[in-house]
Simulated assay, not measured.
Amino acid sequence: MKTAVLGSGGWGTALAMVLLENGNEVTLWSYQEAESRVLRETGENPMLKGVPLPRELALTSDLNCVRGCAMVVLATPSFAVRTTARSLKGVLDPGTVVVSVSKGIEKDTSLTLTDAIEQELGPDHPVVALCGPSHAEEVGRKVPTAVVSASRNQKAAELVQDLFMNERFRVYTSPDIVGVELGAALKNIIALCAGCCDGMGFGDNTKAALMTRGLTEIARLGVAMGGRKETFAGLTGVGDLIVTCTSMHSRNRRCGILIGQGVPVQEAIQQIGAVVEGYYATATGKELAEKMGVEMPITEAAYSVLYEGKDPRKVITELMTRAKKHEIEDSWL
């Protein structure tokens, strides 16, 4: 089946290789011709070192590559998802399924990325979110991985499942696109915090508490926005949280480590050298929590460190000395 992946970063490249392995015709699109030229000349993506690009993978910077495709994957950074979707108007064939694989919440609107895509493309193109605990570095090396294809359109979710799934890349389907996307986006906040704790020299106890309570507040907001509670116990909830908070592949965790070691926030982001989605997710997560009337103390604490310059050690003390709570929120009601 003819497909295209828009965005030639590590994740877009890894997914393009999965599609190609499954017998699809695949074109990998780069925003700039210089990026595409590097891939052609070196036969490798610098973000996936040691993973050779198959010769059958078509490389281009011409957006007309999406014409005639049954499925188009948007693998750009979250800030570029809307503009990329807008550029597809009048180029996509009617009925082409559009798959968002970026993780984030749109900065200016606080919309999920699939909502932003739907606003731009309208009802003629079913939209799917493909998320889960999936480092590009490992998918590129064919490490067994499981993800979720979520959509309000069951046939579209199942098409994505059919095209991507193989013996090393397992795909589940879900109708809960809201819960799937929010879990995938908001876990980056907790990963930044987990890295910060590592940078300050705290231990396993601290990280376990942070991840568990972080998941609680992610689910709290997700349910308030229409997601299903059980989604947050799945791959795009606890699964994505585990992999992002514990792996050095995670840009968010690495950035947090630097901040915990005392590196100023903006300098830490620059040292990572790529988009740190958790930085932006913290601001939008805080805004959504206030809008929905949902308590998210860890997100608020992260915001105070990232945007207000608060000392992370003082923030930890404040979190630990908050008013007494029941762990189960509806206890004895």
Rank of each mutant, 00 (worst) to 15 (best):
G9P: 02
G9N: 11
G12A: 13
E35I: 03
N166I: 02
G239I: 07
E33K: 13
N188R: 08
E287I: 03
E137H: 10
E308Y: 13
T244S: 13
D176R: 04
G43C: 03
N153L: 01
G201W: 05
E295D: 11
N22T: 02
R313E: 08
Q270E: 15
V305S: 13
N64E: 12
L63Q: 05
S30R: 12
S247L: 04
T173C: 08
I259C: 08
L48F: 07
V180W: 04
S134I: 13
S61W: 01
G260M: 05
N252D: 05
V238L: 03
E329M: 05
L306N: 12
P94S: 07
I218N: 13
S174D: 04
I242T: 06
K207M: 06
I269W: 08
G132I: 01
G140F: 03
L258V: 06
S8I: 15
A233L: 14
M1L: 12
E318D: 14
K291E: 14
R67S: 06
E56Y: 00
I298E: 09
R170V: 10
M296D: 00
A323H: 15
D62L: 02
A156P: 06
A301L: 08
G285Q: 14
G50L: 03
S87I: 06
E137K: 10
V294G: 07
A4P: 06
Q161F: 06
T114I: 02
T236H: 07
C65H: 15
A233R: 08
H326T: 11
E44V: 04
P126T: 12
G122N: 11
